[in-house]
């Protein structure tokens, strides 16, 4: 990993996530010296976290007796978009839902293994699940704005959860809407219901909502599967712009989409990770025969 956070402010918030558990004394503190952002410092989204690298180690996930994810080892690297492709039911959504621990919200679901955010195991004992989700944002398959809230309140919701001071909220909401490419379309009607937006706008509203709390990682679970091609293109462009700010993992069963947005592509089949590599190599010259068959459309 040769990532250098050169032009961004580094904020080490790793302690927040583990504040409730005694840290081992030898725990490394990879604090790079904070540097001033060269870009508009007004937007909090320009800042970047030291904690941004996700590594799954021997991750298993179950629904009751159904073994949905079978020992996956995979990294989501900072500054890069990782796409996870594979046929329906291969466990790709389940796998990313283990990262922000939404998997365990489903009755009867459980998981095993390690999910490391830098050096902290998000599944470890004593880790606060609410804190995990503030570090790891998520965008769902179907846009799910809060049904009773205005556009503004939707984006402000996460900030209110964290007790952000009132005078900061407006700026951060505007910045998040700007970052999600929605500002020009909703300016002047922020008090209208979030549900009044079109499908694609609703999905970008959900992206803005997730970005507002400045997560280190953004998981996107088939974010475009319910959208038309134009709205899809907008989201894909957005993913390209956001990857410098936040580590992104995109689950998709659209291989062309993986080809367009991802730096790294992982292919899953029947709960197992078959192959992971640079996107171009995965689509042109994969090592595994099953990957080859899948990307050339022989099945799936």
């Amino acid at each position: 990993m040769d990532y250098e956070p050169s032009d961004v402010t580094v904020v080490d918030r790793k302690d927040e996530i583990t504040s409730r558990i005694p840290r081992p004394a030898e725990a490394p503190a990879p604090a790079s010296p904070p540097q001033q952002s060269s870009e508009t410092p007004a937007s909090g989204l320009e800042r970047m976290h030291a904690t941004r690298h996700i590594r799954l180690e021997d991750l298993h996930a179950y629904y009751g007796s159904n073994h949905a994810v079978k020992g996956v080892n995979l990294s989501f690297e900072p500054g890069k978009v990782t796409a996870i492709i594979g046929p329906s039911g291969c466990g790709k959504s389940t796998m990313v839902r283990c990262v922000n621990r939404m998997h365990e919200e489903i009755p009867g679901a459980r998981s095993q293994g390690r999910v490391l955010l830098d050096d902290v195991d998000l599944r470890g004992p004593g880790v606060d699940v609410v804190a995990v989700r503030r570090f790891v944002g998520m965008v769902f398959q179907k846009a799910n704005p809060f049904p009773t809230m205005s556009i503004f309140d939707n984006v402000a919701a996460g900030l209110r959860f964290t007790g952000t001071p009132r005078d900061e909220i407006t700026d951060r909401v505007n910045a998040a809407l700007e970052a999600a490419g929605l500002w020009d379309e909703v300016e002047g009607r922020l008090s209208e219901p979030g549900m009044s937006l079109s499908g694609g706008q609703q999905q970008r509203l959900c992206i803005a909502r997730a970005l507002a709390v400045e997560p280190a990682v953004l998981l996107m679970d088939e974010p475009c599967s319910a959208l038309d091609p134009v709205a899809t293109l907008k989201i894909e462009e957005l993913i390209g712009q956001l990857k410098q700010r936040v580590t992104i993992a995109v689950v998709t069963h659209n291989m062309q989409q993986a080809g367009r947005v991802a730096d790294t592509t992982a292919f899953m089949l029947s709960g197992e990770l078959v192959e992971v590599g640079p996107t171009e190599k995965m689509f042109t010259n994969p090592d595994d025969e099953r990957t080859e068959q899948y990307v050339t459309g022989k099945f799936g």
Partner: peptide, 11 residues
């Protein structure tokens, strides 16, 4: 899905 959204947002 709305409830899930609130939880995933760190609620």
């Amino acid at each position: 899905s709305a409830k899930e959204g609130a939880l995933a947002l760190g609620g």
